[in-house]
Amino acid sequence: MRNPTGRQLRFGAELRKLRERAGLTATEAGQLLGVKQAQISNMEAGRVGVSPERVRALACHYDCADQSLVQALSEMTSERSRGWWEEYRETLPNTLLDLAEMEHHATQLRAGITAHIPGLLQIHDHAREVFRQVVPELSPPDIEHRLSFRIKRQAVLFSESPTPYRAYIHEAALRMQFGGRHVTRRQLQHVINMSERSHITVRVIPFAAGAFPGSGQSILYAYGPVPPLDTVHLDQSHGSALIDAKAQLDKYRVLLDRMEGIALPPRESRELIRAIDQEL
Protein backbone atom coordinates (compact mmCIF):
# COMPACT_ATOMS: atom_id res chain seq x y z
CA MET A 1 0.00 0.00 0.00
CA ARG A 2 1.43 3.41 -0.96
CA ASN A 3 2.05 5.93 1.77
CA PRO A 4 -0.68 8.60 2.01
CA THR A 5 0.12 12.12 0.88
CA GLY A 6 0.03 15.06 3.24
CA ARG A 7 -3.45 15.98 2.03
CA GLN A 8 -4.73 12.45 2.59
CA LEU A 9 -3.25 12.48 6.08
CA ARG A 10 -5.01 15.77 6.73
CA PHE A 11 -8.32 14.34 5.51
CA GLY A 12 -7.98 11.39 7.88
CA ALA A 13 -7.02 13.67 10.76
CA GLU A 14 -10.17 15.72 10.23
CA LEU A 15 -12.29 12.55 10.40
CA ARG A 16 -10.55 11.66 13.65
CA LYS A 17 -11.25 15.13 15.08
CA LEU A 18 -14.95 14.76 14.28
CA ARG A 19 -15.06 11.37 16.00
CA GLU A 20 -13.20 12.58 19.08
CA ARG A 21 -15.45 15.63 19.42
CA ALA A 22 -18.39 13.20 19.42
CA GLY A 23 -16.74 11.32 22.31
CA LEU A 24 -16.61 8.04 20.39
CA THR A 25 -13.85 5.44 20.21
CA ALA A 26 -12.82 3.97 16.85
CA THR A 27 -14.52 0.74 17.88
CA GLU A 28 -17.80 2.52 18.66
CA ALA A 29 -17.62 4.44 15.39
CA GLY A 30 -17.11 1.17 13.51
CA GLN A 31 -20.14 -0.35 15.17
CA LEU A 32 -22.29 2.63 14.13
CA LEU A 33 -21.04 2.33 10.55
CA GLY A 34 -21.13 -1.47 10.46
CA VAL A 35 -17.39 -1.92 9.91
CA LYS A 36 -14.47 -3.11 11.99
CA GLN A 37 -12.39 -0.79 14.14
CA ALA A 38 -9.43 -1.33 11.80
CA GLN A 39 -11.40 0.19 8.92
CA ILE A 40 -12.01 3.36 10.93
CA SER A 41 -8.33 3.50 11.87
CA ASN A 42 -7.28 3.11 8.22
CA MET A 43 -9.63 5.89 7.14
CA GLU A 44 -8.29 8.20 9.84
CA ALA A 45 -4.71 7.37 8.83
CA GLY A 46 -5.44 8.32 5.20
CA ARG A 47 -4.52 4.82 4.02
CA VAL A 48 -7.79 3.98 2.27
CA GLY A 49 -10.22 5.84 0.07
CA VAL A 50 -13.52 7.02 1.56
CA SER A 51 -16.64 7.69 -0.48
CA PRO A 52 -18.60 10.96 -0.11
CA GLU A 53 -21.55 8.91 1.15
CA ARG A 54 -19.42 7.41 3.90
CA VAL A 55 -18.14 10.84 4.91
CA ARG A 56 -21.70 12.10 5.24
CA ALA A 57 -22.70 8.97 7.19
CA LEU A 58 -19.80 9.47 9.59
CA ALA A 59 -20.67 13.15 10.02
CA CYS A 60 -24.25 12.18 10.85
CA HIS A 61 -23.12 9.62 13.44
CA TYR A 62 -20.73 12.20 14.87
CA ASP A 63 -23.50 14.86 15.11
CA CYS A 64 -21.46 17.29 13.00
CA ALA A 65 -23.65 20.29 12.19
CA ASP A 66 -21.01 22.09 10.11
CA GLN A 67 -22.36 21.28 6.65
CA SER A 68 -19.75 23.39 4.85
CA LEU A 69 -17.00 21.30 6.46
CA VAL A 70 -18.80 18.05 5.64
CA GLN A 71 -19.18 19.15 2.01
CA ALA A 72 -15.50 20.12 1.78
CA LEU A 73 -14.41 16.76 3.23
CA SER A 74 -16.74 14.95 0.82
CA GLU A 75 -15.12 16.74 -2.11
CA MET A 76 -11.67 15.73 -0.87
CA THR A 77 -12.61 12.06 -1.24
CA SER A 78 -12.44 12.33 -5.04
CA GLU A 79 -8.83 13.52 -4.92
CA ARG A 80 -6.99 10.23 -4.44
CA SER A 81 -5.28 10.71 -7.80
CA ARG A 82 -1.67 11.87 -7.61
CA GLY A 83 -0.50 15.18 -9.05
CA TRP A 84 2.53 16.22 -11.09
CA TRP A 85 4.68 16.27 -7.95
CA GLU A 86 4.52 12.46 -7.77
CA GLU A 87 7.30 12.18 -10.36
CA TYR A 88 9.59 13.53 -7.62
CA ARG A 89 8.38 11.04 -4.97
CA GLU A 90 11.59 8.98 -4.88
CA THR A 91 14.02 11.88 -5.25
CA LEU A 92 12.80 14.74 -3.03
CA PRO A 93 11.69 14.92 0.62
CA ASN A 94 8.00 14.26 1.20
CA THR A 95 7.69 17.67 2.87
CA LEU A 96 8.39 19.37 -0.47
CA LEU A 97 5.80 17.23 -2.23
CA ASP A 98 3.27 18.02 0.51
CA LEU A 99 3.97 21.73 -0.03
CA ALA A 100 3.28 21.48 -3.78
CA GLU A 101 0.09 19.51 -3.10
CA MET A 102 -1.03 22.11 -0.54
CA GLU A 103 -0.42 24.99 -2.96
CA HIS A 104 -2.23 23.16 -5.76
CA HIS A 105 -5.42 22.75 -3.73
CA ALA A 106 -5.40 26.10 -1.91
CA THR A 107 -8.21 28.56 -2.64
CA GLN A 108 -5.77 31.42 -1.97
CA LEU A 109 -2.20 31.82 -0.71
CA ARG A 110 -0.70 34.38 1.64
CA ALA A 111 3.03 34.64 2.40
CA GLY A 112 5.17 36.57 4.86
CA ILE A 113 8.90 36.53 4.01
CA THR A 114 11.82 38.38 5.59
CA ALA A 115 15.04 36.89 4.19
CA HIS A 116 14.17 35.47 0.77
CA ILE A 117 12.10 36.22 -2.29
CA PRO A 118 9.08 33.87 -2.05
CA GLY A 119 9.65 30.63 -3.96
CA LEU A 120 6.60 31.21 -6.15
CA LEU A 121 8.12 34.50 -7.34
CA GLN A 122 11.72 33.39 -7.89
CA ILE A 123 13.34 33.33 -11.33
CA HIS A 124 15.52 30.39 -12.36
CA ASP A 125 18.92 31.96 -11.68
CA HIS A 126 17.89 33.32 -8.29
CA ALA A 127 16.45 29.97 -7.20
CA ARG A 128 19.53 28.12 -8.45
CA GLU A 129 21.75 30.29 -6.24
CA VAL A 130 19.45 29.68 -3.26
CA PHE A 131 19.88 25.93 -3.72
CA ARG A 132 23.65 26.33 -3.97
CA GLN A 133 23.60 27.60 -0.38
CA VAL A 134 21.81 24.55 1.03
CA VAL A 135 23.58 22.69 3.85
CA PRO A 136 24.65 19.96 3.34
CA GLU A 137 25.74 20.96 -0.15
CA LEU A 138 23.72 19.68 -3.09
CA SER A 139 25.32 18.24 -6.22
CA PRO A 140 24.80 20.15 -9.50
CA PRO A 141 22.24 17.54 -10.75
CA ASP A 142 20.35 17.75 -7.44
CA ILE A 143 20.30 21.53 -7.68
CA GLU A 144 18.76 21.36 -11.15
CA HIS A 145 16.27 18.74 -9.96
CA ARG A 146 15.08 20.97 -7.12
CA LEU A 147 15.02 23.93 -9.45
CA SER A 148 12.68 22.17 -11.89
CA PHE A 149 10.39 21.27 -8.97
CA ARG A 150 10.28 24.86 -7.72
CA ILE A 151 9.46 26.25 -11.16
CA LYS A 152 6.66 23.72 -11.65
CA ARG A 153 5.16 24.83 -8.32
CA GLN A 154 4.71 28.29 -9.84
CA ALA A 155 2.07 26.93 -12.20
CA VAL A 156 -0.60 27.78 -9.58
CA LEU A 157 -0.02 31.44 -10.49
CA PHE A 158 -0.24 30.93 -14.25
CA SER A 159 -3.18 28.56 -14.76
CA GLU A 160 -6.46 29.57 -16.43
CA SER A 161 -7.90 30.03 -12.94
CA PRO A 162 -4.81 31.17 -11.00
CA THR A 163 -4.73 31.03 -7.22
CA PRO A 164 -5.00 34.47 -5.57
CA TYR A 165 -1.65 35.24 -3.96
CA ARG A 166 -0.61 37.90 -1.44
CA ALA A 167 3.03 38.32 -0.37
CA TYR A 168 4.55 40.58 2.26
CA ILE A 169 8.28 40.81 1.54
CA HIS A 170 10.76 42.57 3.79
CA GLU A 171 13.09 45.09 2.19
CA ALA A 172 16.05 43.00 3.37
CA ALA A 173 15.00 40.14 1.09
CA LEU A 174 14.89 42.50 -1.88
CA ARG A 175 18.41 43.79 -1.24
CA MET A 176 20.10 40.40 -0.87
CA GLN A 177 22.03 39.67 -4.06
CA PHE A 178 21.58 35.99 -4.89
CA GLY A 179 23.57 35.35 -8.06
CA GLY A 180 25.06 38.85 -8.29
CA ARG A 181 23.91 42.24 -9.46
CA HIS A 182 22.49 41.27 -12.85
CA VAL A 183 20.47 38.32 -11.51
CA THR A 184 19.18 40.48 -8.67
CA ARG A 185 18.01 43.19 -11.07
CA ARG A 186 16.15 40.63 -13.21
CA GLN A 187 14.64 39.13 -10.06
CA LEU A 188 13.39 42.50 -8.84
CA GLN A 189 11.86 43.26 -12.23
CA HIS A 190 10.13 39.88 -12.18
CA VAL A 191 8.60 40.64 -8.78
CA ILE A 192 7.33 43.97 -10.13
CA ASN A 193 5.87 42.30 -13.23
CA MET A 194 4.17 39.60 -11.18
CA SER A 195 2.77 42.18 -8.75
CA GLU A 196 0.94 43.83 -11.64
CA ARG A 197 -1.14 40.71 -12.30
CA SER A 198 -4.70 41.06 -11.03
CA HIS A 199 -4.54 38.01 -8.76
CA ILE A 200 -1.17 38.83 -7.17
CA THR A 201 -0.50 41.43 -4.48
CA VAL A 202 3.04 42.23 -3.37
CA ARG A 203 3.58 44.57 -0.43
CA VAL A 204 7.00 45.50 0.92
CA ILE A 205 7.80 45.87 4.61
CA PRO A 206 10.42 48.67 4.65
CA PHE A 207 13.33 48.87 7.07
CA ALA A 208 11.66 51.97 8.50
CA ALA A 209 8.77 49.83 9.80
CA GLY A 210 11.08 48.55 12.53
CA ALA A 211 10.41 45.40 14.51
CA PHE A 212 7.30 43.32 13.95
CA PRO A 213 5.98 39.91 15.09
CA GLY A 214 6.89 36.94 12.93
CA SER A 215 9.97 38.67 11.54
CA GLY A 216 12.18 35.61 12.02
CA GLN A 217 9.99 33.21 10.04
CA SER A 218 9.03 32.33 6.50
CA ILE A 219 5.26 31.80 6.52
CA LEU A 220 2.96 30.47 3.81
CA TYR A 221 -0.73 30.38 4.70
CA ALA A 222 -2.87 28.22 2.42
CA TYR A 223 -6.61 28.81 2.63
CA GLY A 224 -8.82 25.76 2.27
CA PRO A 225 -12.44 25.66 1.04
CA VAL A 226 -13.50 26.26 4.67
CA PRO A 227 -11.43 27.75 7.55
CA PRO A 228 -10.97 24.46 9.45
CA LEU A 229 -9.07 23.11 6.40
CA ASP A 230 -6.55 25.97 6.28
CA THR A 231 -2.86 25.03 6.57
CA VAL A 232 0.34 26.91 7.44
CA HIS A 233 3.70 25.97 5.94
CA LEU A 234 6.83 27.02 7.82
CA ASP A 235 10.18 26.88 6.04
CA GLN A 236 13.22 26.66 8.30
CA SER A 237 16.83 25.49 8.02
CA HIS A 238 16.13 22.20 9.77
CA GLY A 239 13.21 21.44 7.47
CA SER A 240 9.65 22.48 6.76
CA ALA A 241 6.46 21.79 8.70
CA LEU A 242 2.73 21.86 8.00
CA ILE A 243 0.55 23.17 10.82
CA ASP A 244 -3.24 22.94 11.04
CA ALA A 245 -4.19 23.23 14.74
CA LYS A 246 -6.83 25.95 15.15
CA ALA A 247 -4.86 27.91 17.75
CA GLN A 248 -1.82 27.99 15.48
CA LEU A 249 -3.88 28.95 12.42
CA ASP A 250 -5.36 31.83 14.41
CA LYS A 251 -1.87 32.93 15.50
CA TYR A 252 -0.40 32.95 12.00
CA ARG A 253 -3.36 34.84 10.58
CA VAL A 254 -2.72 37.52 13.21
CA LEU A 255 0.99 37.58 12.35
CA LEU A 256 0.21 38.05 8.66
CA ASP A 257 -2.38 40.71 9.48
CA ARG A 258 0.29 42.57 11.46
CA MET A 259 2.70 42.32 8.52
CA GLU A 260 0.02 43.64 6.19
CA GLY A 261 -0.65 46.49 8.58
CA ILE A 262 2.93 47.82 8.40
CA ALA A 263 3.66 46.98 4.74
CA LEU A 264 3.60 49.66 2.06
CA PRO A 265 0.60 49.73 -0.31
CA PRO A 266 1.11 47.89 -3.63
CA ARG A 267 1.99 50.99 -5.70
CA GLU A 268 4.47 52.32 -3.13
CA SER A 269 5.92 48.81 -2.84
CA ARG A 270 6.64 48.74 -6.58
CA GLU A 271 8.23 52.18 -6.32
CA LEU A 272 10.55 50.97 -3.56
CA ILE A 273 11.49 47.85 -5.55
CA ARG A 274 12.31 50.05 -8.56
CA ALA A 275 14.41 52.32 -6.34
CA ILE A 276 16.37 49.33 -5.04
CA ASP A 277 16.85 48.13 -8.62
CA GLN A 278 18.23 51.50 -9.69
CA GLU A 279 20.71 51.49 -6.80
CA LEU A 280 22.34 48.26 -8.05
Rank of each mutant, 00 (worst) to 15 (best):
G46K: 04
G46V: 05
R47F: 08
R47D: 07
R47T: 09
R47A: 11
G49V: 05
S51W: 03
P52Y: 05
E53K: 12
E53R: 13
E53F: 07
R54M: 15
R54W: 11
V55I: 12
R56S: 09
R56Q: 12
R56E: 12
R56F: 04
R56A: 11
A57P: 01
A57T: 10
L58A: 07
L58W: 10
A59M: 10
C60M: 13
C60A: 15
C60R: 15
C60H: 14
H61G: 04
Y62R: 00
D63P: 00
C64E: 12
C64P: 00
C64G: 01
A65E: 14
A65L: 11
D66M: 08
D66A: 09
D66P: 06
Q67P: 05
S68D: 15
L69P: 05
L69G: 03
V70S: 03
V70L: 04
Q71A: 14
A72I: 04
A72M: 04
A72S: 04
L73Y: 00
L73E: 00
L73S: 00
L73D: 00
S74F: 00
S74G: 15
S74R: 03
S74Q: 11
S74I: 01
E75R: 10
M76Q: 14
M76Y: 07
M76H: 07
T77N: 10
S78Y: 12
S78F: 12
S78P: 02
S78D: 12
E79R: 14
R80L: 10
R80I: 09
R80D: 10
S81C: 07
R82N: 00
R82Q: 08
R82H: 06
G83N: 02
G83P: 04
W84L: 03
W84S: 03
W85M: 03
E86D: 12
E86L: 07
Y88N: 02
Y88G: 04
Y88I: 05
E90D: 15
T91G: 09
T91M: 10
N94D: 14
N94R: 14
N94W: 07
N94K: 13
T95C: 08
L96V: 02
D98K: 00
D98P: 01
L99I: 08
L99W: 05
A100F: 02
A100M: 01
E101S: 09
E101N: 09
E101C: 06
M102G: 02
M102C: 12
E103P: 07
H104G: 10
H104Q: 15
H104I: 11
A106D: 05
A106L: 06
A106W: 06
Q108S: 15
Q108M: 13
Q108R: 15
Q108Y: 10
L109M: 12
L109E: 05
R110F: 03
A111P: 01
A111T: 13
G112R: 09
I113C: 13
I113W: 13
I113Y: 14
